[in-house]
Structure formats: C-alpha cells, structure tokens
Design a protein around this nucleic acid. Structure first.
Lengths: 140, 140
DNA sequence: GTGAGTCGCTTTTGATTTGCAAGTGATTTT
DNA sequence: AAAATCACTTGCAAATCAAAAGCGACTCAC
C-alpha cells in the first residue's frame, strides 16, 4: 500500500495500530523502558508481537535500542525526539477520550490540566520523560 | 481484550486502525460523505473492509448513516459531534507528520497555520465540515 | 413495463497476520 | 556446574485481510 505523502497516512503507518499505540503510551507516559516492562503491561501483549512492534518503532525512528551495560542480557528502549514530539497529539487524543468515554478512569484533574495550557502540560510530561531516562543515560 | 478505562486504549479501540483512521480523515477533512466517495479514496479500501469499518464507526457514535431521500439506493454518512471533536487531535497528529516525514506532500502553509492558533484552525475546519454537510442536511 | 445499469453491501476464496505455547541461546546467579 | 533470567524465535491454529464475484434494491432509458 502507498502510505506516502499524506500526513494522516504517515501517522497511521507508524502508530495506526493498537499495539504500537500502547507501546508509545507506555514509553512516553508510564516511564517504561525495558523489554520486560512492556511485556508486563496489563493489556498482555505477546512476545512475538512485542518484538515485532519494537523493531518497527526502532526502524521508524521512534525508539533506540540499548543493551544494559550492567547486565548485558537486558535491553532497554529510549524514546527519540520524534517520539517525544508526539506528546501534543497524544495528549489531545487523551482529552478527547476523557470527554467522550463515559467509563474513563483518567483522574478528573487530567483534562482541565491539559486544556488550560497545552504547552505547559507538554513541558511537564517532557520533564517526566527526562526523569525516567536519567538513570539509563548515566549507564551509557 | 479489555479496552476499558485508559484513554489511550479507548482512542486505540476507535481509530487505532489504519482504515478507520483514513475514513475519519476523509469525512472530517475531505468532505466525503457517500459510500462511493470513501470507496474511491486513493488508498483503495476493499468493499468488505469499508462496510465493516463504517458499521464500527456508526456503532461507536462517530458517524450517522442516512439514506439519500432523492435516490434511495444511495447512502451517506455524517460525522457526529464526537467525531468533529477529534479535530484538535487529528490536526496535532498531522503537524507531527509534516514535521517528521521528509516526503510529506502537505502544503507548506499547513503546519504554520495550525501551530500559530490551533483554536482558529479548528474553527476553520469545522466551518468546512458544515459546508460539506449543508446540502445533505437540507434533504433530510 | 422491461432490461440494463448503479449502488451498497455480503459472500467466497485464498493469503497474510495474529495470539498462544513452547523453544533457544546468551548471559547471570547460586 | 546447574539453574534461572532475559530477549527474543519458531511452529501452529485461528482470526483477519484483500480481491473478486454475487446479490437485492433501486433507478433510468426507452
């Protein structure tokens, strides 16, 4: 299929897929970095799909793969700038979900926080990402 | 799978799928309304998938289905408020794609227009949607 | 009013992708 | 040295997909 040129198709090609979407959420919002962290997500991704999606996301420049130098059998993934730049879109989507899903479990404070000042919300989540990255960056 | 509670999973359940994504683009941004319009999109969706996705989007409250009263063999679909509320997220995603896809074919003016004032951009696209709806709403 | 389209699906038929379970091989740990 | 951990791979049945043909309800030309 031709996924070239159109911005919506480009986005769909990279995360227009349940599992890629959930992995990006985990790495951007939940501070997950290790293969095992992703595997343990409550959605229960299977190992073959996880390996395949991580490879896809690495290939499309969303994640970088690293061996843990302290324990070389472990592997972690860091979000690139390209992935981090998804935050505004991701937060906007989440606000939409909170507004339209009667069963949402997001905290009441989330939507107002983002709606009031998106730029500030993005900065806050960027800081969280830096915090999650820090101990791993020290190792490299 | 349990798609309940988490806003990202909610969004993924509704448009975390290439074809739903493309259909929402067509109805929100390209003024497509008729079954035949969607079928003719350059991506070449097959009829069984199109019928299935339209039914899904209707079931999740994104589209409403209508028979054309002037020619009852034709059918059109209108975006609901819930679908229209996706505009901010959709535009944010498109800006991200334009920023990161070296082969993007979006006009140069698009990203600055949205970045400069998102609220204004949303209003502009809402007006386009109203324009596309108008002739059909007259019929009903 | 009849026959030839048009339109919006549905069905059928393979091919691809998925989820699950069971490996595998490279490290650590004991 | 043996056992456990970890990040995948592999094999397979089941679900999903695309492509093509079929179908019934219209609509239009004559």
């Amino acid at each position: 299929m031709e996924w070239q040129g159109c911005p919506v198709r480009y986005a769909a090609g990279i995360f227009g897929d349940k599992w890629s979407f959930v992995l990006l959420r985990d790495v951007l919002l939940h501070g997950k970095r290790y293969y095992g962290d992703f595997l343990a997500s409550e959605e229960g991704i299977s190992t073959n799909v996880l390996a395949s999606r991580l490879a896809d996301l690495e290939a499309s420049g969303m994640l970088t793969r690293h061996q843990d130098p302290e324990k070389r059998s472990r592997v972690f993934y860091l979000p690139t700038r390209k992935a981090r730049d998804l935050l505004p879109a991701l937060l906007a989507m989440m606000v939409w979900s909170v507004d339209h899903d009667p069963d949402t479990k997001a905290p009441e404070s989330f939507a107002p926080f983002v709606k009031q000042d998106m730029a500030r919300a993005v900065r806050w989540y960027e800081a969280q990402i830096d915090k999650a990255n820090a101990p791993l960056l020290d190792k490299l």
